[in-house]
């Protein structure tokens, strides 16, 4: 069953209130929820159940790094020893010490792409439209205000009870989020 609303959103004035509210909401059993803040707040994502283990960006960086390392070493080995071996004063074709700089740079390059693309893709960007933007005061989420949204997909979600619960957290106001 699809709810008529995306969820309910409470607005707070300070990062402390938001972290406390997030902890209480998670403790109350809500799992489909998200917090919004104008700057990173340490401990906030953990409060809503997103910890180090759920974060796969480091894996993307590792894979990028391995890809760069193999590509760099592979390209130079292939070009110097297989594709066009050139005898320069009897030096070895696979002269790996002189392959180090290019290998190193490509490792860094692809690892950096892993970090950036990993972050962008896992965050679901680019995503120009999202229901939370339908709340007028949400325009302040990028400047000075702090929001907690409990989504209607949560099994415990029930418009009246969830609304009461959010009001009990002493927010500035509670708004319904349209789809």
């Amino acid at each position: 069953m699809k709810h008529p609303t995306y969820g309910l959103m409470a607005e707070f004035d300070s990062p402390h209130d938001l972290v406390e509210a997030a902890h209480k909401a998670y403790a109350a059993g809500y799992r489909k929820l998200d917090a919004y803040s104008p700057f990173p707040i340490h401990g906030l994502s953990e409060a809503i159940g997103f910890g180090e283990k759920e974060d796969k960006v480091p894996l993307a960086v590792l894979l990028g790094g391995i890809a760069g390392l193999s590509a760099g070493l592979g390209l130079q080995y292939w070009a110097s020893a297989i594709y066009y071996p050139l005898n320069v004063g009897g030096r070895p074709f696979a002269s790996w010490p002189s392959f180090v700089p290019v290998t190193f740079e490509l490792t860094i390059l692809l690892a950096a792409f892993g970090a950036v693309l990993g972050m962008i893709i896992m965050n679901g960007f680019p995503q120009p439209y999202h229901p939370v933007f339908n709340v007028d005061r949400f325009a302040l989420a990028s400047t000075s205000q702090f929001f907690l949204c409990i989504e209607s997909e949560d099994p415990l979600f029930e418009p009246d009870r969830t609304g009461e619960f959010l009001k009990s957290l002493q927010p500035r106001e509670v708004n319904e989020v349209a789809h």
């Binding site: 919004y36 990173p40 906030l44 997103f50 190193f104 860094i108 690892a111 970090a115 962008i120 965050n123």
Partner: peptide
């Protein structure tokens, strides 16, 4: 902005990515 909305989960991945980028840029 790619649709940035300041979600806590996004911030978490964002901070990880920034930190790892800094770690990569330093030897670079």
């Amino acid at each position: 902005s790619l649709g940035w909305r300041g979600s806590a989960i996004h911030w978490h991945r964002y901070e990880t990515a920034s930190l790892l980028l800094a770690g990569l840029a330093t030897p670079l």
